[in-house]
Design a protein around this nucleic acid. Sequence first.
RNA 1: GCGGACGUGGCGAAAUCGGUAGACGCAGCAGACUUAAAAUCUGCCUCUCCUUGAGAAUGCGGGUUCAAGUCCCGCCGUCCGCACCA
Length: 839
Amino acid sequence: MTSRFNPATADARWQRTWEDRQTFRASGAVGDPRPRAYVLEMFPYPSGRIHMGHVRNYTMGDVLARYRRMRGADVLHPMGWDAFGMPAENAAIEKGVHPGDWTRANIATMRAQLKRLGFALDWSRELATCEPDYYGHEQALFLDLFDAGLVYRRESEVNWDPVDATVLANEQVIDGRGWRSGALVERRKLNQWFLKITDFAEDLLEGLGALDGWPDKVRLMQENWIGKSQGLKFRFRLTAPAAGLDEVEVFTTRPDTIFGASFVAVSPDHPIALDLAARDPAAAAFIADCKARGTTAAELETAEKKGFDTGLTALHPLDPDSRLPLFIANFVLMDYGSGAVFGVPAHDARDFEFATKYSLPINRVVAAEPAAAADLVHEAETGAGVLVNSRFLDGLDVPAAKAEVIARAEAGGWGQGTTVWRLRDWGVSRQRYWGTPIPVIHCAACGPVPVPRDQLPVVLPQDVSFDQPGNPLDRAPAWSDVACPRCAAPARRETDTLDTFVNSSWYFLRFASQPSDQPFDRAEAERWLPVGQYIGGVEHAILHLLYARFWMRALQRIGRIGIAEPFTGLFTQGMVTHETYRAGDGSWLSPDEVQRDGDDWTTLADGAPVTAGRVEKMSKSKRNTIDPEPIVDQYGADAVRWFMLSDSPPERDLPWSAAGIEGAWRFIQRLWRLTQSEPGDGADPALDRKLHAGIAAVGANIEALAFNKAVASIHELANAIDKAPPSASRAAAAATLIRLVSPMAPHLAEEAWAAAGNSGLVADAAWPMVDAALLVEDQVTLALQVNGKLRDTVTAAKGVARDEMERLALASDKVRKLLGDAAPRKIVVVPDRLVNIVL
RNA sequence: GCGGACGUGGCGAAAUCGGUAGACGCAGCAGACUUAAAAUCUGCCUCUCCUUGAGAAUGCGGGUUCAAGUCCCGCCGUCCGCACCA
């Protein structure tokens, strides 16, 4: 009998066995009687090497996949690569390697790393989005949506770096400058492709209600993102025309407050503002100043509210005597509503700040009590109340007043009740090489023409260079210059590529079904979809998950699938974090450059003092990353997996520590010793109970994805087995423990399973059955309280009568001592739990 | 700014319905084994005090209740999200 489990040899041996036997290959066969389970983790971007976040993510999914198999399911648990994206182009620019070579090399590295962790994956379905046999089908789907009228083209602004001659993502713009060139970023208008996600706004919002397998937090984030607002759109007549307009349209969610209006404001991008800027340098300067600042919601809301008085005035639609000044204001967004608002300072915090600054009237029109109608407003009051100072609206509550104003506007023809969405159509054009080519040809005569289906895939040209700024596809005439498919005249391919979020909007369908002649087979995909449990980072809570939900609905509309929601269960896991270290000069030090010296830290090199900083997400910039591979070399896959599951709840951050992985390693070895223990005779009823309580607890905790609690349950059971004297019960418990730990520590479990003389693989074994009779305790510990404070405990038979509980409580020495001669005022009895004596 | 989450020992945490706070683990301390170390095993391990016992304690301040980590009100703090990185 070997006394140690040796992952250095065992891991690879079992991984080879699983692969040889195709153990984790999903069947999906129509006649297969097993229930199907689709377990999916968000597929990785092949950035170079696996990091600890991947290890945690895939370990969680793996435990669930293995557990479901043992519970008798046909499990689909696939893996692939989200392989298009900017880092590959950055590598091409910086290192001169082709993005494809870089990406495929990374995939090879990361695939080997994942395999060393022993994940129960069906590698036969592996896919990479950068290969034509994936993105060609994506092009076909894009054209399907195009044919269905769900794709259109319009002008849209981008961040333009004039030095690198490239479009920048928002995150590449730092303080208004390009991250690489440092040049001032310009806003430039380009013709771009859009997907009509707004067509599905209502449905995407309503669908959230049924997604009870999703975290509330994610549902709320999506709800806010979609941002449904109901209100009134109406026009203010201008007293003098501007930009050829004699009225300005505004949108409000508070039409009830219309008599409280004291100004009208338009966005700096509004036609009126632009027209004025052309004639008035002061207005132009104001607009330029607004544009120099950030445009995210957070930046706009926290920035000082600023306005430019145009000198124009607007007529109030319900009060001919009222003239409202028209401002250009920095907090009005052109692409939300109509790009113009009216301001009611008394009942909107933003308007209040603005009015205070520009000395505009603050007119109360809503009051908590009608009696307070004349009170001054000292801060914006946005709560409920009744209308005051509002003519025919006086006395109505807010909802009734809203309805009344909308009704009058529609009757009078000056406005209309409207629903406005924050959700905007999805711009999918990217002016980059390393993405799915948009399958369209631009012809001077015919306009944009779809590439004929029989000419798909439109394959990216291999021979491109990154030695000049800009998109290499713009400089690849051999690829881009083609004949128009419709009129045969010289034409040019679309050189923009698709947003990489398109790639990840349907990969789960391709995993489920991968015919060569179409993106997926509907019937086969519907046998697996929706994904029962999807696991990934919360950073995808909005965009990826919303786009995938949209894509499914779009496919449903064109009849390619009969399912609207791609993921019924969603789990967002926390990050892996690590302490940070800084040298005296403030530079970051990596964990392998420092050592602990009592309570202090010093450098390994020269013993210089080190400041240990806060625990933060592992990141290259702070140098606090731990590469999983050397850890796997040293401790084996199971110890790493065990650590990933222990201690921290999976939705919370997990602080990596050297001591923690050591502890996991020691426990793996302890499990090995336990499973190798000697047989014995005789029953141990107490241990039998603990075993079955353990089986139930581990299973329930895995089902609930509470892996930290599943691990704790295994520890408890291991402790109980360790302490028990030899018996047949003990031997049986140790044997059962092998199956209980197998989803988490599969290599150890296979080794122990084989050593115990079992045939076949533990991966194929059934999850142990719980004997429900053994879960019922026949003894309970009763808490005895005096005035709500615990004073004693007493053991009694389960189901003991209430008056017997009372008698036991009053018989306790400790209770009697406190009670003295006094008679209890009241005795509270909670069956099988406690007795509380109130004095 | 708006929206949301969270706050429990030295640390990660547990406590399913309002019912014995701190399961389980890490670190630490003491001991056994050992020539020694590692590994392993045993015990201790929230704080305070007048330590055979008692008191306090789940961010702070109130409240409801026989009973509050859990429910309610008000603060404080930390973290996350708010449109083309994946």
